[in-house]
Simulated assay, not measured.
Amino acid sequence: MGMSDAFVARSLEEVRFWSRIMKEHSLFLRLGFRCEDTSLINEANHFYAIFESIEARANAFTGGTDPNVIKRFNDEVHNAVSHIWLFKRKVLGLILTCKLPGSNNFPLLVDHVSREANYFRNRLTELNTGTLEPLPDAIIDENVFFLRIMADHAKFISHLLDPSERKLIDQANHFSEEFDKLLFQARDLESMRPQSQTVPLLDQFLDQNRVSVKSLRDFKKTARDLIEACRIKSIIHPLLADHVFREAEHFLFIIDMFERSLTGRPFQAERLDA
Rank of each mutant, 00 (worst) to 15 (best):
M22S: 12
N42F: 04
P67D: 01
G32R: 06
F28R: 04
F47S: 08
R115L: 05
T97M: 07
L12W: 02
S19Q: 00
D37C: 08
D111A: 15
S11C: 08
P67T: 07
G93T: 06
R57E: 15
P67E: 00
F87T: 13
L109K: 05
N122F: 00
R121Q: 15
K23P: 00
N104L: 14
L108E: 14
A49P: 00
I84F: 05
H83C: 12
N105A: 05
S39G: 03
V110G: 04
R89F: 05
D75Y: 07
F73R: 07
A56P: 01
D111V: 05
A58S: 15
G102M: 02
H25R: 03
F33E: 10
A80Y: 11
N122M: 09
N74G: 02
C98D: 10
S53L: 09
W18M: 12
R16K: 15
K99V: 08
G93H: 03
D111Q: 08
F28S: 04
E36W: 07
D66C: 04
R20S: 14
E76D: 12
Y48I: 08
N45P: 01
V113L: 13
P101K: 04
E52Q: 13
L109D: 04
R115N: 09
F28H: 08
A60P: 01
W85H: 14
I21L: 10
M22N: 10
V77G: 09
